[in-house]
């Protein structure tokens, strides 16, 4: 899954976005000195390799009125956390779901599921649904609402010279 120099140029040219025109790949290809067909072939391979997850847009939760953002965290039995994590991740209102290491004694939780909603009450009721799904395999849980975005910069692949 390594990127050759041309792939790297393509990633750098598209990670800030594609132009919103009917034929965006033709525009990017021309800028890069590639044919549209070669660009599409390379993007298709990057997608098959899992480097590109999808082509689309992400909604801005805040601007859509979903201003409550709760990180729900759970201490789930290690024997069951992967099977249950799959189920929690499949819930329509969970936008990210990860297994992470505990940091005892400060932090007993190993399953993290992000939930967005219009109000904290809505997020709390979704948390109750997660709790019901986990059942007795979850020994404890908590929810951390975000109160302020302190920094948000997009992920950027650095240029080779950087």
């Amino acid at each position: 899954m390594s990127l050759d120099p041309k792939d790297r140029t393509i990633v750098e040219a598209t990670q800030a976005g594609l132009p919103l025109v009917p034929a965006p790949f033709a525009v990017v290809a021309e800028n890069l000195g590639l044919s549209e067909a070669e660009l599409i072939t390379r993007l298709t391979r990057l997608k098959q390799d899992g480097i590109i997850r999808r082509i689309g847009a992400a909604p801005n939760h805040y601007r859509l009125g979903m201003t409550a953002n709760g990180m729900t965290v759970w201490d789930v039995d290690d024997a069951h956390v992967d099977a249950l994590g799959e189920k929690v991740g499949a819930l329509a209102f969970v936008t990210h779901c990860y297994r992470r290491p505990r940091a005892l004694p400060d932090w007993p939780y190993n399953l993290f599921a992000m939930v967005h909603g219009e109000t904290r009450e809505e997020v709390q009721s979704k948390r109750t649904e997660i709790s019901a799904l986990l059942g007795s395999a979850s020994r404890a849980g908590d929810i951390l609402f975000s109160t302020r975005i302190l920094k948000k910069t997009g992920m950027r692949l650095r240029g080779k010279e950087a």
């Binding site: 594609l18 997608k47 480097i51 590109i52 847009a57 992400a58 801005n60 601007r63 992920m155």
Partner: peptide, 22 residues
């Protein structure tokens, strides 16, 4: 789509990369 993006309802349009795969 462009106006949704310009109004901030959608973030950028384009490929979403797996950051770790990069």
């Amino acid at each position: 789509i462009r106006s949704l993006r310009d109004d901030g309802l959608l973030t950028r349009f384009g490929p979403f990369f797996d950051a770790e795969a990069l």
